[in-house]
């Protein structure tokens, strides 16, 4: 399962990178986040609860960062367990590019989902992933971004190399998103991405 996407955030690159490392901001932005802790400069743990279709689960995840090039890029890998709901394993690359006063955040994710979550199937999972990602980036932009008309700007959609378009925040944008991400995965990815 793979996903590539680009998000536009209304803040300078350094601010975005710093915010992605700020557990207080992340705790506020991640939907259902119950705990998030930096174990070391390159490791963190998080607990997030989410409801995906009929499954309500609390996920515990841990993430390791590597190849850190502030404020440009990093890679991450992680694993999350949702008890009876299933599990996910993720690897991702994140890149930040200045776009005037704003920042373009590119990421690609490879994820393996297992257990009941995997079996829910595309329709439910996709809907949840879309909703959670939307909520996260809306909150993140509100917390980090410049609070003026930029927030009303249309999404900066950039076709990505894989099977993807882009979208961000503000409710249910991204009607063309080919989300293939599991709902829980979305939560975890957000956790990890935004480290």
């Amino acid at each position: 399962m793979q996903l590539t996407e680009q998000i536009r955030i209304n803040a300078p690159r350094e601010a975005v990178f710093a915010a992605l490392n700020d557990v207080d901001i992340l705790r506020q932005a991640i939907p259902g986040c119950e705990a998030i802790d930096a174990v070391s400069p390159t490791e963190m743990t998080a607990t997030v609860s989410a409801k995906v279709g009929p499954l309500k689960a609390r996920f515990s995840g841990q993430v390791t960062l590597a190849d850190l090039v502030p404020p440009e890029s990093y890679t991450l890998s992680g694993e999350g367990k949702g008890g009876p709901a299933g599990h996910v394993r993720v690897s991702s690359r994140v890149k930040l590019t200045a776009d005037g006063a704003a920042t373009l955040l590119d990421y690609d994710v490879k994820a393996d989902i297992g257990g009941k979550l995997a079996q829910l199937g595309g329709a439910i999972v996709e809907k949840t992933a879309r909703k959670l990602a939307g909520e996260f980036f809306a909150s993140f932009n509100a917390l980090v971004g410049v609070p003026e008309s930029a927030a009303e700007a249309p999404p900066a959609a950039t076709p990505a190399p894989v099977e993807t378009s882009a979208s961000h925040g503000h409710g249910h944008g991204g009607e063309h998103l080919p989300w293939v991400l599991g709902g829980a995965l979305a939560v975890l990815v957000i956790v990890w991405l935004t480290r």
């Binding site: 393996d112 989902i113 297992g114 257990g115 995997a118 079996q119 199937g121």
Partner: peptide, 14 residues
């Protein structure tokens, strides 16, 4: 079964 052996057809929707 997916590429990790996850059984993906465990209800009558699938």
């Amino acid at each position: 079964y997916d590429e990790r052996g996850q059984q993906m057809s465990a209800d009558f929707e699938h």
